[in-house]
Each structure stands twice: as C-alpha cells, then as structure tokens.
Amino acid sequence: MTAKDCGHEDDERKKLHRRLLTASLAFLLLVLFLILLIFLILQPSKPAFLLQDATVFAFNLSSANTLTTTIQVTLAARNSNQRIGIYYDRVDVYAAYHGQQITLPTLLPPTYQGHKDSAVWSPFLYGDAVPVAPELGVALGQDQIAGTLMVNIRVRGRIRWKVGTFVSGGYHLYVNCPAFINSGGRSVGIGGGGEVAVKYQLIMDCHVDV
C-alpha cells in the first residue's frame, strides 16, 4: 500500500467522523426542538398552592430571645395542566417570621400529581428554643399589640414534569404562603406560653416560583 493510499483512507475516515458528528448534533437539536415544541403546545403551568389552615400549639418567646414554635398547617397543591403530570421528588416545609426561619424543615412524602389532580399535606412544623435576633422580640411585641402576626409558611423542593412517557429533569420549587394569625395573647398560646391549641381557617393563596 502506498503512502498516497494511506492518506486517502485517513481522509475518508475524517470525513466519516465529521458526518457522524454532524448527524449526531442534528439529531440532538431535533430532539430538543421537539421537546420545546411539545412544551409550547401543551403550555405547562406551575402548580397552585393554597394554605387552608394553621393550628398553633406554641409560639413562645423566652426572655433569652429563643422562640419555641409548634404549628400544624394544611397545604393543598393543584396541578392545573391537562396533559402534564408533576412529580414532587423532595419537598420541605418550614415556617419563617419576619424573614427568619423559626422551625426545622419538615420533609413531605414524594408524590405524583396527575392531570388536574390535587394533593393535600398536613405537616407539623417544630422549632425548639430557636435563637432569634433581639429585634424579632420587638416585632413580636408590636404584632401582639396590633392583634395580628404574620407567619410565612414556605415550601422548597424539586419537581419534574411528565408528558406521556417523557419525564423532564428536576426543577426547583419555591412557595411562600402568608398566614395572618390572631395574636390573642396567653389564652390562645401565641407569644405568651399558653397550652391551648387554636386552629385558624386561612384559605390563603401562595406565591409559587419554578
């Protein structure tokens, strides 16, 4: 075999590799385009969350600026998509007050939500002697005087979309639910160390980011 024949074979192999690479890229772009087209046609919408109620067992600030909180909340999520299902892979719920997290995250069970389907969770949120900034105590005192305090119930996690047999990659889920609670003093166990649990019917829409 001459050097000319070897060079010709090398050129053919390079051309073949280029063609295979071009075909692979074209196929990948076609798949991505089809996925994008399907999502545009289906118009996926993010799930809607609703905070239905909150039962307050404790919301007590100590003289050492530690806050003990026990709240049970009822959260409802609805998938409004007609052709898209939603996998909730890992979802945590916690409470925040004036921007500060006051309970540990509570992990919800993994859930699949079908088309136009709803899911309801009723997790307990606990915070035992959580150190808080001094200004938080001032804010709590002001809210008690005003008669209402706002606790934010927050959800964070990862979800996936399901279209037919196709399942997307993970997307971050962020939900914020404002809960306006009557701070009725010691008799209802909010801010004053009472032992009576009080259930509040809230029916509050939540802000959802995906």
Results as ranks from 00 to 15, higher is better:
residue 37 L to P: 00
residue 169 G to S: 13
residue 20 L to D: 12
residue 42 L to W: 01
residue 2 T to C: 06
residue 96 A to G: 08
residue 141 G to K: 12
residue 89 D to G: 09
residue 9 E to N: 03
residue 67 L to C: 06
residue 92 D to V: 10
residue 68 T to H: 11
residue 42 L to V: 13
residue 18 R to T: 11
residue 72 Q to Y: 05
residue 90 R to S: 15
residue 60 N to V: 06
residue 183 S to L: 02
residue 145 I to C: 04
residue 90 R to M: 15
residue 74 T to L: 09
residue 104 L to G: 01
residue 171 Y to M: 10
residue 207 H to M: 05
residue 14 K to L: 13
residue 38 I to N: 08
residue 117 D to N: 15
residue 182 N to I: 03
residue 36 L to N: 11
residue 151 V to Y: 04
residue 112 Y to R: 14
residue 148 T to I: 12
residue 156 R to S: 11
residue 58 A to G: 07
residue 166 F to V: 13
residue 40 L to C: 05
residue 75 L to N: 07
residue 9 E to L: 15
residue 77 A to G: 10
residue 158 R to W: 14
residue 152 N to P: 01
residue 91 V to W: 03
residue 176 N to R: 01
residue 40 L to P: 02
residue 40 L to M: 14
residue 134 P to L: 00
residue 150 M to K: 14
residue 191 G to F: 04
residue 32 L to D: 08
residue 10 D to G: 00
residue 6 C to S: 04
residue 113 Q to L: 13
residue 106 T to N: 06
residue 128 D to G: 10
residue 11 D to L: 08
residue 44 P to K: 12
residue 110 P to F: 02
residue 116 K to F: 01
residue 209 D to G: 14
residue 15 K to Y: 10
residue 174 Y to E: 03
residue 138 V to R: 15
residue 73 V to W: 03
residue 39 F to Q: 14
residue 106 T to W: 00
residue 66 T to K: 10
residue 10 D to R: 00
residue 116 K to S: 09
residue 17 H to F: 04
residue 127 G to S: 04
residue 68 T to I: 03
residue 19 R to W: 13
residue 105 P to G: 09
residue 167 V to Y: 01
residue 6 C to F: 12
residue 72 Q to V: 10
residue 147 G to R: 06
residue 129 A to F: 00
residue 165 T to I: 15
residue 33 F to V: 10
residue 163 V to R: 03
residue 124 F to H: 00
residue 138 V to K: 14
residue 208 V to G: 05
residue 59 F to P: 04
residue 1 M to N: 08
residue 97 Y to T: 07
residue 103 T to F: 02
residue 83 R to F: 15
residue 75 L to M: 14
residue 152 N to Y: 02
residue 164 G to E: 09
residue 168 S to N: 12
residue 75 L to Q: 03
residue 125 L to M: 10
residue 194 G to S: 10
residue 114 G to N: 06
residue 54 A to F: 11
residue 163 V to F: 03
residue 154 R to T: 10
residue 53 D to L: 14
residue 97 Y to K: 01
residue 184 G to E: 05
residue 110 P to R: 00
residue 54 A to K: 10
residue 80 S to C: 08
residue 88 Y to F: 14
residue 107 L to T: 11
residue 142 Q to V: 09
residue 208 V to A: 03
residue 53 D to E: 08
residue 73 V to N: 02
residue 201 Q to K: 09
residue 171 Y to C: 06
residue 76 A to M: 13
residue 95 A to M: 11
residue 127 G to V: 02
residue 139 A to L: 12
residue 44 P to G: 11
residue 175 V to L: 05
residue 52 Q to T: 09
residue 37 L to D: 02
residue 194 G to Q: 10
residue 91 V to F: 01
residue 80 S to D: 05
residue 135 E to Q: 15
residue 199 K to T: 14
residue 140 L to S: 03
residue 204 M to A: 15
residue 138 V to A: 12
residue 157 G to C: 04
residue 92 D to K: 10
residue 189 G to F: 13
residue 27 F to Y: 06
residue 23 A to N: 03
